[in-house]
C-alpha cells in the first residue's frame, strides 16, 4: 500500500514537471495535453469517487502552488475532474478490464471538464463561452485523449 502511494507520488511529480516543462514544446498554441488528468483518471478508476475527488483536490492544490497560476482555479477544476472520473468507478471491475473506447471517452470527458472550469475560474473578466468551450476546452481534451492512447495500450499489455 505504502509502496503504491510512494510510486504514485513519484509519478505525479514527474508528470507535473513534464506538464510545466515538456508540454509547452508539444502544445499547439493553447491546445495542450493535460498529463495530470491521465494520472487522476487512472487513480480515480481504481480508488473510487470519494478518494478520486480528494486526490483531484490535492493535485489541483499542488498544481496551483507550483505553476504560478491563480490559486483555487486548479483546485476547483481538478476536484470536479476527480469526481467525474470517479463516477465511472466500478467495484466489480476496478479499472483493469475497462474497454479501450470507454477509457478514452472518460479521459476526454474529464479533461474537457477540467479545461472548462480551469479557464472560467482563471479569467478575470467574462469571456465568450463558445471560445472557452470550443477553443480552450474541447481541442485540449481531444489532444489529451490522443496522448493517452499509447498509455492505454501499454497499460492493457
Amino acid at each position: 500500500m505504502r509502496k503504491n502511494i510512494l510510486i504514485t507520488t513519484l509519478i505525479f511529480f514527474a508528470l507535473l514537471s513534464a506538464q510545466l516543462y515538456i508540454v509547452p514544446f508539444i502544445s499547439i498554441g493553447f491546445i495542450s495535453p493535460n498529463l495530470l488528468i491521465l494520472l487522476l483518471v487512472f487513480i480515480a478508476l481504481k480508488v473510487g469517487q470519494i478518494r478520486g475527488t480528494l486526490i483531484g483536490f490535492l493535485i489541483g492544490l499542488i498544481f496551483d502552488f507550483v505553476s504560478g497560476g491563480v490559486v483555487g482555479s486548479g483546485m476547483f477544476a481538478y476536484t470536479i475532474s476527480g469526481f467525474t472520473a470517479g463516477y465511472f468507478f466500478d467495484e466489480n471491475n476496478i479499472g483493469e478490464d475497462i474497454s479501450f473506447t470507454k477509457l478514452l471517452g472518460i479521459i476526454f470527458l474529464v479533461s474537457l471538464v477540467n479545461n472548462f472550469f480551469y479557464t472560467i475560474l482563471g479569467a478575470s473578466e467574462v469571456m465568450n463561452m463558445s471560445i472557452i468551450f470550443f477553443e480552450q476546452s474541447l481541442f485540449s481534451a481531444i489532444y489529451t485523449a490522443l496522448i493517452s492512447i499509447p498509455l492505454i495500450v501499454l497499460r492493457r499489455r
Binding site: Q49, I50, F57, G60, G72, S73, M75, F76, F83
Partner: peptide, 26 residues
C-alpha cells in the same frame, strides 16, 4: 450521498482560495 458532500466541501474550499491570492500568507 457522501461523495456529493465531499465534493461540495472541497469546491467551497477551492473557491475560498480565489480571493486569498493577493494575501501575504498565501
Amino acid at each position: 450521498r457522501r461523495q456529493y458532500f465531499v465534493l461540495v466541501v472541497l469546491l467551497f474550499i477551492s473557491l475560498a482560495f480565489l480571493p486569498l491570492n493577493k494575501g501575504e500568507k498565501l
